[in-house]
């Protein structure tokens, strides 16, 4: 919890209404984003994203599994978020559970798309090895190391970076009788890369007073009346949306927010792309 005096609260609100926030940013400016990839050698792909003093890690692990009988031609992706007590003392024990569940749910909403499996984010049909028998299960884990607001956007960016860093081993399937479980040979040398250009970014618009801002710090978040997280892909389509926080919003405000999110997302996607490319280049050098 953030303890703020009345004066500080007024300062934050006044700054936002004058389009000059406490740290000198404008309403629609993000804090500088730093991305490192390949930070966890044990995982198939990983990335660390720092957004001001918000610090998160995402890792992707791939395991061979069986596709669900309902969707034999699709792999599975699961997203979990863990809030470490190193970030906030209240996350200790079961304290972080509620926030973890909320973040996991929001990320699944925003990145995975609808039940039919079609949709944004990750192309699930590319995860199938043998239809109906073997597929890849992707476990995406997010970890909050340090929290200073806007966790969802940071986690979304980290997952995008981790996915583009992920290499899935090439699998050779032994020819076998049709109804038996086929034997597979996992290659140690050949890896397949994901096409992550379709993975959307998440933009959270936090409403403080009459205006809304992107990339709120925890001080600013404590003053919010409501927040809407919108995930937008490269084509400018909305891939998911979830409202967080209490008060109601006028429908016209929501429509306005989607167009702002659309505009902001274009810059954010560009920024992330160049950061991810730079991080990958760094990793290759070392």
């Amino acid at each position: 919890m953030v303890g703020l005096s009345e004066g500080e609260k007024e300062f934050i609100k006044g700054g936002i209404s004058q389009d000059l926030r406490a740290d000198g940013r404008k309403r629609y400016t993000y804090r500088p984003i730093y991305i490192e990839t390949g930070v966890i050698p044990q995982a198939n792909g990983s990335a660390r994203v720092r957004l001001g003093s918000t610090d998160v890690i995402a890792s992707v692990k791939a395991e061979l599994g069986k596709p669900s009988p309902m969707q034999p031609d699709k792999g599975k992706v699961a997203i979990f978020v863990d809030c470490s007590p190193t970030a906030e003392p209240i996350f200790e024990g079961r304290g972080g559970e509620e926030l973890s569940a909320e973040l996991s749910g929001a990320l699944q909403h925003c990145l995975l798309g609808a039940k039919s499996g079609s949709g944004p984010g990750i192309d699930l049909s590319s995860l199938v090895v043998v239809e109906g028998k073997i597929c890849w299960d992707l476990y995406v884990d997010g970890l909050v190391i340090s929290s200073d607001g806007n966790l969802l956007d940071a986690l979304g960016a980290a997952i995008k970076a981790a996915l583009s860093n992920t290499g899935i081993p090439r699998v050779h399937v032994a020819v076998n009788a049709a109804d038996e479980q086929p034997e597979v040979d996992i290659s140690d040398e050949e890896f397949l890369q994901f096409d992550t250009s379709g993975v959307p970014v998440i933009v959270t618009l936090t409403k403080v007073g009459k205006h809304y801002i992107v990339d709120a710090t925890s001080e600013e978040e404590s003053q919010m009346s409501s927040a809407v997280s919108i995930s937008v892909n490269r084509r400018g389509h909305i891939c998911g949306m979830i409202k967080r926080g209490g008060q109601g919003l006028d429908p016209s405000v929501i429509l306005d927010m989607t167009s702002v999110a659309n505009f902001v997302s274009r810059q954010l996607i560009e920024k992330l792309d160049s950061e991810i490319a730079a991080a990958e280049a760094d990793e290759d050098e070392s």
């Binding site: 995975l112 389509h237 909305i238 409202k243 919003l249 929501i254």
Partner: peptide
Amino acid sequence: EVTQLTVTGEW
């Protein structure tokens, strides 16, 4: 006023 709104899939 909208109190809750969730969207999945591409729109």
